[in-house]
Amino acid sequence: MNKEELFWSASIEEISNGYIFIEETDEYICLICNQTFENGVMYPHENRELFYDARKAMIHHIKVQHHSMFEYLVGMDKKYSGISEHQRDLLLYFKQGLADKEIANNIGGSTSTVRNHRFKLKEKEKQAKVFLTIMNLLEKEKATDFVPFHKGAKMVDERYAVTQEEKEKVLSNYFKQGLDGPLDTFPSKEKRKLIVLQHILTKFDSSKQYTEKEVNEVLKQVFHDFVTLRRYFIEYGFMDRSNDGSAYWIKN
């Protein structure tokens, strides 16, 4: 994902912070310049005596290199921000905490004019909230096609609601040679585990019982650590087995 795509895919909170955390690569990325800081690495401060973790290093980077997200955002082209040059100047004055009279003296106008601009910007904020809510609801309408999980599966609740789009994205990331190919790595996140296990389960016949050896043979075709897959099938409730472990079947 390039710099522009990364910025516009970020949430309001992420844009306010100036960075986004990418779980797949376990790193923080600056939304202004795409500088990255890897989670788990300690980064030295300029005085060489302090060290920051990745998130604090990113916050420091934005402050030192870009001053503030507020200044960056109000300085964006009008076609992106919808803010005129005059509104930008007013917002910068508001950020400084200047009184209306002080601002009026700086821009050459009356305090009532400044108050009127404050009112118009507040109205613009309300309109933006309504529009964002409308777009959010529109996205929710598009995302109501949730993937049904196997009825016996555990760990499935509203926190793990998965859309078809999410499922396709996860599977493409973990089955890079296609859905009939091998699993590259086994995910650590619960939601991704469910998606991957659900897919692998399709390789078994729900009306058939399998020996442990037969289960292993199927899973070996998918992933080298077939023991982990078999264990998670039981733990997550996708499969059940006899007490002596001689028979396995898809849990109904």
Score class of each variant (00 low, 15 high):
residue 196 V to F: 13
residue 103 I to Y: 11
residue 206 S to D: 11
residue 224 H to T: 15
residue 3 K to I: 07
residue 136 N to C: 05
residue 3 K to A: 10
residue 110 S to Y: 10
residue 133 T to I: 05
residue 60 H to R: 07
residue 105 N to C: 08
residue 249 W to D: 06
residue 24 E to I: 02
residue 43 Y to R: 13
residue 232 Y to N: 12
residue 95 K to Q: 11
residue 134 I to W: 10
residue 235 E to H: 03
residue 44 P to S: 13
residue 238 F to P: 03
residue 121 L to V: 01
residue 228 T to S: 08
residue 34 N to K: 05
residue 5 E to A: 04
residue 9 S to C: 07
residue 216 N to H: 01
residue 31 L to W: 06
residue 126 K to I: 08
residue 126 K to H: 07
residue 134 I to A: 07
residue 200 I to Y: 03
residue 53 D to W: 00
residue 172 S to K: 13
residue 110 S to W: 03
residue 119 F to D: 15
residue 36 T to D: 10
residue 140 K to Y: 05
residue 216 N to A: 12
residue 176 K to C: 06
residue 236 Y to N: 02
residue 175 F to D: 15
residue 108 G to H: 08
residue 59 I to Q: 15
residue 154 K to T: 12
residue 225 D to P: 05
residue 252 N to D: 05
residue 225 D to Q: 11
residue 51 F to D: 15
residue 193 K to P: 04
residue 197 L to E: 12
residue 209 Q to Y: 14
residue 161 A to H: 11
residue 138 L to C: 11
residue 7 F to I: 01
residue 10 A to I: 08
residue 243 N to R: 13
residue 52 Y to S: 07
residue 137 L to G: 09
residue 178 G to L: 02
residue 182 P to W: 02
residue 56 K to W: 07
residue 52 Y to I: 06
residue 200 I to F: 05
residue 62 I to D: 12
residue 179 L to W: 11
residue 111 T to W: 03
residue 166 E to G: 01
residue 4 E to G: 01
residue 180 D to Y: 04
residue 144 T to W: 14
residue 188 S to T: 10
residue 122 K to I: 05
residue 6 L to R: 13
residue 213 K to Y: 08
residue 150 H to I: 00
residue 3 K to W: 10
residue 200 I to R: 00
residue 9 S to F: 01
residue 112 S to P: 04
residue 102 E to V: 04
residue 116 N to D: 10
residue 79 K to S: 09
residue 108 G to Q: 07
residue 25 T to L: 13
residue 210 Y to N: 06
residue 2 N to M: 04
residue 162 V to E: 09
residue 81 S to T: 14
residue 181 G to P: 07
residue 124 K to G: 03
residue 111 T to V: 06
residue 85 E to Q: 06
residue 227 V to R: 09
residue 12 I to Y: 14
residue 118 R to A: 05
residue 10 A to V: 04
residue 84 S to K: 08
residue 240 D to W: 04
residue 59 I to M: 09
residue 114 V to T: 15
residue 151 K to G: 08
residue 197 L to K: 10
residue 158 E to L: 09
